[in-house]
Simulated scan of single mutants.
Amino acid sequence: MTQNPQSLVQEYVQQGIEARTAFFQAGSESVIEVAKLMAVTLVRGGKILFCGNGGSAADAQHLAAEFVSRFEMERPSLPALALTTDSSVLTAVGNDYGFDQVFSKQVKALGREGDVCVGISTSGTSRNVLQALRMGREQGLTTVALLGREGAAIQEHCDYPLCVPAQRTAHIQEVHIVIGHLLCGLVDHFLFEAADQLQPYL
């Protein structure tokens, strides 16, 4: 029997609510901790690097733009880069070294000790994201991962894994962008509204 469109909509929405609720019941404190870490990094003159594939590449660009332009308040531009945007670098590294290294080469070239590298992977298994986080650790960056499912191999190679316990890729991506927006808003809060809360970290 064919499912009717209204039930498809309701099922999809309910699954999305469940995915968001499941993550934030366990992970809200981790999101706040990562936001404080990012704010401290920016205070110290560091930057945030984002990477991911497909829809996660779009999220990387989206979040970098929120930092560089603005999120919800007028404030100075904040240094962030999406490692998904330079087609010449991506194709040169992909051609000469393989697709697994398209982000790690950029982390090695652009990352500095104290920066933050954020890898986004709904599967938790993206090898180029894994390599970027490994390189970040070698370079002295703090590594954060937005993951899905069980986080798989990547979870073992980052300092702050934020793993959405869902199976449907679309729902994982939806929660990832909620996490990303919260990070943007919380960083702004800690930098421009509640700077005293960063003192224990400085």
Rank of each mutant, 00 (worst) to 15 (best):
residue 1 M to V: 13
residue 2 T to A: 08
residue 3 Q to H: 09
residue 6 Q to R: 10
residue 7 S to W: 15
residue 9 V to T: 04
residue 10 Q to W: 01
residue 13 V to P: 00
residue 15 Q to N: 05
residue 16 G to P: 08
residue 17 I to L: 15
residue 18 E to F: 12
residue 18 E to K: 15
residue 23 F to Q: 02
residue 27 G to T: 00
residue 28 S to T: 11
residue 36 K to D: 00
residue 38 M to V: 09
residue 41 T to W: 01
residue 45 G to D: 14
residue 50 F to A: 05
residue 63 L to P: 13
residue 64 A to S: 14
residue 67 F to H: 01
residue 71 F to T: 08
residue 72 E to K: 06
residue 72 E to A: 07
residue 72 E to W: 04
residue 74 E to H: 13
residue 76 P to D: 06
residue 81 L to Y: 10
residue 83 L to E: 10
residue 84 T to K: 13
residue 84 T to C: 13
residue 85 T to R: 09
residue 89 V to L: 11
residue 90 L to E: 08
residue 90 L to G: 11
residue 93 V to A: 10
residue 94 G to E: 08
residue 95 N to A: 06
residue 102 V to I: 11
residue 105 K to W: 08
residue 106 Q to H: 06
residue 107 V to E: 01
residue 108 K to H: 12
residue 108 K to G: 04
residue 108 K to M: 14
residue 114 G to I: 02
residue 115 D to A: 01
residue 116 V to F: 02
residue 117 C to S: 11
residue 119 G to K: 06
residue 120 I to G: 00
residue 120 I to Q: 03
residue 120 I to F: 03
residue 127 R to S: 10
residue 130 L to Q: 07
residue 130 L to A: 14
residue 130 L to C: 08
residue 132 A to E: 07
residue 135 M to K: 15
residue 139 Q to Y: 04
residue 141 L to F: 06
residue 142 T to D: 12
residue 146 L to E: 05
residue 147 L to S: 00
residue 155 Q to G: 08
residue 158 C to E: 09
residue 158 C to P: 07
residue 159 D to G: 03
residue 160 Y to A: 07
residue 161 P to H: 05
residue 162 L to W: 02
residue 162 L to K: 00
residue 163 C to H: 09
residue 167 Q to P: 05
residue 168 R to W: 09
residue 169 T to S: 10
residue 169 T to P: 06
residue 169 T to H: 05
residue 172 I to D: 05
residue 185 G to N: 08
residue 186 L to S: 03
residue 188 D to P: 12
residue 189 H to L: 12
residue 194 A to L: 06
residue 194 A to D: 15
residue 195 A to M: 11
residue 196 D to T: 10
residue 199 Q to L: 08
residue 201 Y to Q: 14
